[in-house]
Each structure stands twice: as C-alpha cells, then as structure tokens.
Design a protein around this nucleic acid. Sequence first.
DNA 1: AATGAATGAGCGTTCATTCAT
DNA 2: GATGAATGAACGCTCATTCAT
Lengths: 212, 212, 212, 212
Amino acid sequence: MTERRFSARKRDEPRAAGDKRERILRAAVKVFARKGFYASRVSEIAKAAGVADGTIYLYFKSKDELLTSLFEDRITRLLDVLRREIEAVPSGPDRVRRIIEFQLGLLEGERDLAEVITVNLRQSTRLLKQYATKRFTEYLDLMAHVIADAQHAGELRTDVSPRIVARALFGALDGLALTWALGNPEPGGLKRAGTQLADVVLQGLERRGPAA
Amino acid sequence: MTERRFSARKRDEPRAAGDKRERILRAAVKVFARKGFYASRVSEIAKAAGVADGTIYLYFKSKDELLTSLFEDRITRLLDVLRREIEAVPSGPDRVRRIIEFQLGLLEGERDLAEVITVNLRQSTRLLKQYATKRFTEYLDLMAHVIADAQHAGELRTDVSPRIVARALFGALDGLALTWALGNPEPGGLKRAGTQLADVVLQGLERRGPAA
Amino acid sequence: MTERRFSARKRDEPRAAGDKRERILRAAVKVFARKGFYASRVSEIAKAAGVADGTIYLYFKSKDELLTSLFEDRITRLLDVLRREIEAVPSGPDRVRRIIEFQLGLLEGERDLAEVITVNLRQSTRLLKQYATKRFTEYLDLMAHVIADAQHAGELRTDVSPRIVARALFGALDGLALTWALGNPEPGGLKRAGTQLADVVLQGLERRGPAA
Amino acid sequence: MTERRFSARKRDEPRAAGDKRERILRAAVKVFARKGFYASRVSEIAKAAGVADGTIYLYFKSKDELLTSLFEDRITRLLDVLRREIEAVPSGPDRVRRIIEFQLGLLEGERDLAEVITVNLRQSTRLLKQYATKRFTEYLDLMAHVIADAQHAGELRTDVSPRIVARALFGALDGLALTWALGNPEPGGLKRAGTQLADVVLQGLERRGPAA
DNA sequence: AATGAATGAGCGTTCATTCAT
DNA sequence: GATGAATGAACGCTCATTCAT
C-alpha cells in the first residue's frame, strides 16, 4: 500500500535481499491474524506484501510451509529475547513475573503476531502436531526450567511438577490473550491482568511456612 | 449405503428426526476431533452419521452452522451438568476444585468432544467471534461467579478480579488439555495435573493472614 | 459398468444414467483430437459434454485418467470388433488385408478417435509407458498371432518374426493415418493406400517358390 | 554456474554465440527425450545447458520455437547425411535398405534425438501441423524419390504410389523405433528388425515375373 | 550478452451446497 | 423426509516469459 513511494532504488538499496522473505512473513502475520489461516488467501498475502502471487513460492514451498516458517522464525526470535531477559533477572519469583509480563507484553507490541500464535497455532491439528511442536516445546521447557531452578533454590514450593506448572501458566496467559484478541479486553487492561495473575501464581507457588 | 433396510426402530419412535440430528452431531464431533474443522469434509460427516450428504442440510444450514450448533448444544449440556455439580458443593474452594476436575474429566470421558472444544474452538476467528462467544462467555461467567461468591463469603482473597481469575483458570485447564490432546500426556496423568493445579490456584487465592 | 440394468427412469428419458460417462468420453475424444491432450482444457471437455467441470471428476480421477480410460475403453471395444472380424475370415493373407482395412477404416468412420489414438497416444511418454501399453500390446499381439498362424499354415514366409512384422505393419498403418490426420490425405484416399499397402506387404510375406 | 570463469576457448572462437545455441539445443534434446515436450521445463533445459533461464530467450523466441528449431536443425542435418549416403549407393533396392539402416541406426547412435523425433514429434498437433511439417515432408519426399527413381529404373514394381510407400515405410520404421524407445526392444535388436523389414519390403516391392 | 528473481495468467481440482427424484 | 448426482465458484500452485541489473 505504501512502500512504493520511491521504488527508485538506483544506487543504495536499503532493503537488501531476504528483504522479500521478511515482507512476506510480515504480510502473512497481518493477514493470518485478521482472518485465520484457512480463510486467508495466498493472493491476499501476496498483495499485502506487495509481491506477485508466484513470488511467495520462491520463498516458501506452500501455504502450509508459510505458516510453519512463520512460527519457526518468530518463536525462535521470541525465545532469544526471553532467554536474555530472564538471565538478567536473578530471583526465581521475579523471573516468573518477567515471563508473564513478556508474554502479555507481546499482545500490545505485536498484537497480530500474538493473535497468530494464540489463535492460528491451533488452526490445524496436523500443523500443530507435525511442526509447531518443536519450538513450542522449547518455549514450555524454558518456563519449566525457570520454575525448576527456583524450586531448587528453595524459592518455590517443590511439591508440584515444573512442567505441569509451566503448561498451566502458559495456558493461563494464552487464555487471557485470547479474550483480549477476541475484543473483550479486560477493563484495566492486560497490565492489570498480568499483575493479578502473577500475584496469584506466585502466592500459589510459595513455600508454606513451618506451620500450615 | 445399506443400513437402512429396516429403519424399523423397535417400536414407537417419536423423534425419528431428532434422532438423525443427534447422529449427525455425534458424527461431527468424531470427525472434527480427528481432523479439525477445515480438514473435515461434510461428506465424511454424512458417511460417519450414516446419512446422505444432503440430509445434513435438512438439519443445519451450513457446515459453519453445524460447528456452531455443536458448541451450542454440547456446551449447554455441559453447563447444566456443571451447574448442578457446583450447587451440590457448599465450599468455595471445593467448588473451584470441582470445576477443575470437571473440565479435565471431560478429556477422559469424552475425549473427542474435549478436543473439538479445545482445538476447534479456535479454528476460525470468525466463528469464534461471531457465534461461539455466547456460550463460552456463559461458561466463563459461571466460573467467575463461583470465584466472586467465594470472595464475598470471605473464602478467597478479594484483591483479584473474578473474571481475570476465571479466564486464567480456564486457560490453564485448556493448556493442560492441549498438551494432552496433542499426545504428550503428563506423566501421572490428568488427575495429578488437576490436583496440582488446584493446589497452586487455591493457595494462590487464599486470603492472607493478618500480616501481608 | 453394470448399473444400467433398468435405469428405468419414470417414462421416457432417452439419455440413460451412465450415459454421462459416455458423454464425457465422447466429448474428450472430440476435444483431444482437435487440440491434443495437453492443450485441451478440462473445462472445454466439460462444456463439450454439457456437464459441469466438477462432474468429470465424478467419473474420472483426473485428466490423465480420463485419457487413460479413453484408451482402455475404446481399444477394448475395437479389439472385440477386430477379433470377431478376423475369425470370420479363414485365409491368413485375407486376415492381414482385413486388419489393414479395419485400421484405416477407423479413420473414416471415427476420425476423431483415430486421431486421438494415433496422435495423443504419444502425448505423454509417461502415459504411454504406464497405462496405454497393456491394451496396445494386446492389439499388437492380435496382429502377431494372425501372422504366426498364417506362417504355421504355410501361407506366409517363416523367416521373419511375427512380432517384428506386426510392429512394422502397425507403424505403417499409423504412418498413413498420421499424414491423413494432418490434413494431407493421399490422393485416391485411404482405400487406395490400404490396397497398395496390403499388396506390398502380402507380396513381401509370400513364401518364395522352390528356388530361394 | 561455474564454467564461465574462462569462457576462453582455446584461441579464436568466432561463434561464442553459436556455441551457446548449440548447447541449449543439445540440452533440449536430452530433456525432451527423457520427459516429453510438455513435461519438460524451460528451467530444466537451461540448467542442463548450463545457462540461465533467460538466456534461452536470447536464442529462441519461445519454448515452442525451441522444439521447432530443434527439428529444423537436426532434420536438416540428417537429411544432408542421408542424401549423401544415398547418392553413394547406386542400386534402388540397396538405397531402400540404406534408408532403413540409417533411420534405425539413429536409435543407437543418437537415441535421445531419435526419441524426440519419434515421440515428441507428435506431442502437439499444432506444432506438428504448423512447423514440423516442412522438414518432415522433405524427409518423406527424399524417400519417395528413391522409390520413384527405382521404379523408373525398372527395379521396383510400378503399381504402387511412391508417396504411399514412403509414408508406410517411414511409419514402419517409426513403429519399430517406438517399441524400442518404450523399452521393449525386440530380441535380436534393431539390426535384426531392420534386416527383416528390408527383406519383406523389398520382396514386396519386387517386380513380378511375366507370369504370376 | 547474460542473469535469475519476479511476474501473473491460467489451470486442475475440490467440496459445500442444491435440487430433481 | 431423504437421497446423492450434479454443480460451479473458488483457490493453490506452476511455469513460460520478462526485464532491471
């Protein structure tokens, strides 16, 4: 829509190669977010990316693979950021809080991407089972590690499985995201929701004092 | 194809029609669960239901409406059961525990239905936004009411929004269900996951002693 | 294939069921003959057959299979006729003459079909290698048998392989058909060409007198 | 991709261009032979020729024209060779034998080219009708002339049309080639097939003695 | 001349939906 | 009501061709 302004790149060429791949991915995020994977047309994505339909197939083998690559690419990126953020926080409980803020923060910073991950991740059982699982599992593992480390450090109760907690926590965040994505944002916003979720979860994971 | 020969149901059979509608819904649950909404063919559902393709359109306006009706029908039924179960439990915290057990219990009792609700609910943003929301909201409201009642009864902390808690809790349960549905059942099973989730959530919702 | 028994439509109804398959085949012959397999559009065939595009796929799995079925169906039919005709002729040389007349006669009676067989048979090496071969081989075998029988009966020279003769004869007929199909009909027509070909071939296959 | 480094052909090399054109033609023969005209991709031919896709269009106007040029070029060359060979043979019957050997010999010497001529010649009715005909006709004419000359010289029977014989003979050779190309080579090989074909044809074309 | 990324028209095929029986 | 053959709009994908570099 914009973009052409000066296509006039005679000399310099700020947008390098691979550029196109990225443009397509960005367009795909936007379109998938708006209409869901199945209702999105390859031609729409192409148009949104400002390329010809066929061009998409120079970068992705199929529409399916476009979604797959999208997950792969974006989640890898998110994982990198999240890992760094977590390392910068020393306390276990604070790390949990950080994860919560991070995941909900996505919704405000990159709403479309969040919606794609939240909603489209489940568009296809097949996709989900075949591809998305690897990175998704990595994400859950990261959360589970944070929990487990804090348990070993004596910061959290040890009578619950880190993996179960991680999955439930992810689900809780996803659930909040879903209602937000569907247009019923919590009054007070995600920030308030995140704070409250963290309050409950952290109190719930607290080690119990000597007496009950 | 065969099968009809004698439709000859035992004796009377006042609801020949209702019968068929239900058969179609049951078939739809099975097929949607296995392949997802978009990958399911109307003809497959017809075959699974033992009716002709066209017959489905005597009971449902479209494939979309079939999914919609499925939610409507099943969730209404679930809500009835859940409401009754909750009324039978007097204590707020126990009610929360009951909800958790109920929702996870679905996965074992009616795995297909659970998978449809868990996975297919998100197949289509449009569907989700347009139709499914009503009953879904009712379900969340039920959870929120239980929380709110318990807060008013002084059984749970009051500094968190019942709706936020309800959504997060629903999400957490959904998250556990998802990993189960995808074939990575938690070791120890859903029962153990449910118990741990309840432990954490209830401790998290506990009113804090005099201090704090 | 069966199915027709009584298609017993209410009253009249000149065009019976399975009718549609035949209509599609007939349309395919016409269209393939005019434009060749690859240049023919499924939608054109549908239109020529007076059915919807999708209908073709109720009777044939793909465009490829349509061509394949066409060969199968038509050549089977031709083989039946040819076998009967040959049996009615006692003398070996006369049988050879009969085959020649029969194959060239096709060109006048069913010019489109002849063109499809002559030209389209080779459209796709893959098709040719995979499917068409069986019936085609049967056809060649029939010719080879006629030659071999006549050799055993002492009617033809025995120093040439029946299979080689069959293939060459088929090729010769096919070659005459090709130039005809391409619009350069031999002056004097196919009949004359057939007679001359038979004259040459039969003299060529004659047993030599006492001296070599 | 590599290869260019030094295009540095030994010394002089006036036909840098012709070089590429020839490489493309050679690649086309190979690819067309393996997969047929329609199933061959221009990009495959480019790759096989070691040039960029676009380069092909510097030498040929279209994929169609590439096939056309191929025929033109190769058949012209074959005609030259065949003409010279025939001139070197004085006797009519021996010339016929020479033609047979020549055409079948192609199959062993340049199998790919033979397959392209034999199979691909018919890939497209349109191509066949529009372009290929000219050279093809020339080839047939050469054969017809040989027959006619021999008839005038009293070496062959005169009651058959040289053109009909030429077409039938070409077809016979083509038919033998086809079965060979399809992978059912005659036991004894083409040589034996050629000898037998020549035996039959020449006996068939013999002038009959005064009596029967 | 040579390149090869980009194009976009065009096609085979699918499948939800209809409707004559 | 019930059927299932027929429909045809719609879409993913291919690939010959172009053209900026």
